[in-house]
């Protein structure tokens, strides 16, 4: 389907394109090895465009390498959350009955859990590897996706085209995969994109609290050191402002991307024509 992009989506795509490129080309782009020690507390200069931290590591290089971990954790968590949430939402909405009750109870429990403290405890108990952090983020984040998908599926299920499939004897699995899932496309996409943003924020919070991936640079991690090694008190703005900007801008990029579909000129036209014809 041909879709014209609107301005917001385009801006989102540009931001994310740049972020992705930076992550992929980190070794090429970074002026220094981010782990290399040098002179501490250097102000921004030609040699170190964003200065250095308390042990003399180049902050720009840290940021560039940090993109990798933020993006990895963000996308993998969002993917997991979306797959799990969508699958449970479809099953619960389409099958109803006891399946629905069990899944909704699980959702209620997961929603009632205080998510950040739980994530913190989990990370603290498990060792702080990338995969454990992803697991900790996912454990509570799938619920809202499941809820939203479920209510949409309940609507779709009552539509004649689904009922007719049933009267033609199509199996539940077939209907869910071929007829329900494609009609959820836009919601699933929007949920996925928004989940990337929130997963990146959670990762940043964890790293800020010192529970991030050990031994790897991440934006939250830079902030953590800036805060706990007195960067903020000493007014080393070049140390703590850039990671905040990086987090905000990339989350914004994903948020903008979520406008895809609802504002595209093509989609609007078709809808209008449909309405006008009635």
């Amino acid at each position: 389907m041909h879709k014209k992009l609107n301005g917001r989506v385009l801006a989102g795509l540009v931001i994310l394109g740049v972020v992705l490129l930076v992550a992929l080309l980190a070794p090429v782009l970074a002026p220094h090895d981010p782990y290399e020690l040098g002179i501490p507390y250097l102000r921004p200069s030609a040699e170190h465009p964003l200065g250095t931290n308390d042990i003399g590591q180049d902050i720009l290089s840290e940021l560039i390498y940090g993109t990798r971990i933020s993006l990895l954790i963000g996308t993998v968590s969002a993917l997991t959350v979306t797959v799990v949430g969508t699958a449970l939402g479809i099953l619960s909405g389409y099958l109803g009955g006891w399946v629905d009750r069990v899944i909704m109870q699980m959702t209620n429990v997961a929603m009632a859990l205080p998510s950040l403290p739980l994530t913190i405890i989990l990370v603290a108990f498990l060792d702080a590897s990338v995969w454990n952090i992803i697991l900790a983020i996912c454990i509570t984040a799938w619920t809202s996706t499941a809820r939203i998908i479920r209510s949409r599926v309940q609507q779709l299920k009552c539509l004649p085209f689904v009922q007719i499939e049933r009267t033609m004897g199509a199996s539940g699995a077939y209907i869910m995969l071929r007829h329900i899932l494609p009609n959820l496309g836009e919601i699933v996409f929007i949920r996925a994109v928004l989940s990337v943003g929130s997963a990146m924020l959670t990762e940043a919070s964890l790293s800020f609290l010192g529970l991030g991936v050990i031994g790897q640079k991440s934006w939250g991690g830079i902030l953590h050191y800036a805060f706990f090694r007195n960067g903020i008190i000493n007014g080393a703005y070049w140390w703590y402002v850039p990671p905040i900007l990086c987090i905000s801008i990339s989350v914004l990029g994903f948020m903008l991307l979520s406008y895809c579909g609802d504002g595209s000129a093509h989609g609007r036209d078709r809808k209008e024509k449909g309405n006008a014809g009635n």
Partner: peptide, 27 residues
């Protein structure tokens, strides 16, 4: 199951909106 079929009131939602009609008719 095969012997009884139904035709609904609203034709605009009688087919999966995401499929071309040829694909719906192949079902």
């Amino acid at each position: 199951r095969r012997q009884i079929q139904i035709l609904f009131q609203h034709p605009e939602v009688a087919f999966n909106p995401r499929l071309r009609l040829i694909d719906s008719m192949r079902e």
